[in-house]
């Protein structure tokens, strides 16, 4: 059999290789499916559910669904757009995402995906949780108010940096990001801004100090063009307004 493997995504044929997920194959074919906890450099996590698609009529996370011949996948439908918008709204009200006061604004994947799915308001009642800010590290700051528990920093620190600095503790609404030291402070770790973990946060939760407004608001990554055109901030080099180290 020399016939190329493929499935259908919104009526378009997407080729794939054995072992690829629906998300990975779509990405390789240049088709954007909105996502937050997915990053092609890491094993899929399947936790944010923003990449939800309909596979043969069933809702599945595209980042964890293996591609298979003959699948019919729907992504850009009104139904899925509404669900994704609801997920984004829940993420926004669960934390404290004050975009006007966040130096990540404009180059933030959470914000850009919210724009993409047409989120005009938070819809739900805000939780206004009380969470700390950790500025103990000389070069980086963690604002836990903005953490969406995607575990990308956890995966990057464990799997790439070999430092195991981050973890998620607690369950359900109690789940929260922790720093793996007795004091719980980032300053007590060997965290470096050159770590992969410093480059993958899809929100403004992990920030590099002293460069917040180097790029003015209005000239940032997602200020003029949407994320499906620009790409993920974590995948773009710093020279192009992203977070990936050149």
């Amino acid at each position: 059999m020399s016939e190329e493997l493929g499935f259908t995504l919104d009526g378009r044929r997407i080729p794939f290789q054995d072992g690829q997920t629906v998300m990975a194959a779509a990405l390789a074919a240049g088709v954007y499916i909105p996502h937050l906890c997915f990053n092609p450099d890491f094993a899929p996590h399947g936790s944010c559910r923003v990449c939800l698609v309909k596979v043969n009529g069933r809702f599945q996370a595209s980042c964890t669904t293996p591609a298979a011949s003959g699948l019919t996948v729907q992504s850009e439908t009104e139904e899925l757009r509404n669900i994704r918008r609801g997920i984004l709204q829940m993420l926004f009200v669960e934390g404290n995402h004050v975009c006007p006061a966040c130096e990540k604004s404009g180059a933030c994947q959470l914000q850009a995906v919210a724009y993409y799915v047409g989120m005009l308001n938070p819809h739900f009642s805000h939780f206004y949780p009380r969470r700390p800010v950790d500025a103990s590290h000389a070069e980086a700051v963690i604002d836990f108010n903005r953490c969406i528990l995607c575990e990308l920093c956890v995966r990057a620190s464990r799997d790439v940096d070999g430092k195991n600095i981050f973890a998620v503790q607690g369950r359900g609404i109690q789940a929260h990001l922790v720093v793996n030291t007795p004091s719980g402070k980032l300053g007590a770790t060997h965290f470096s801004i050159h770590d992969k973990a410093a480059q993958v946060c899809p929100t403004g939760a992990i920030l590099t100090k002293h460069q917040g407004y180097n790029v003015p608001i209005g000239q940032r990554l997602y200020d003029r063009k949407p994320i499906n055109v620009v790409g993920d901030v974590a995948q773009l080099p710093e020279s192009k307004g992203g977070r990936r180290h050149d």
Binding site: V93, A101, R130
Partner: peptide, 17 residues
Amino acid sequence: AIGACALNGGIPAMRNQ
């Protein structure tokens, strides 16, 4: 509702901490 504060409390809502 016009603007961030009307939509989600905005900067004044940072006192909710």
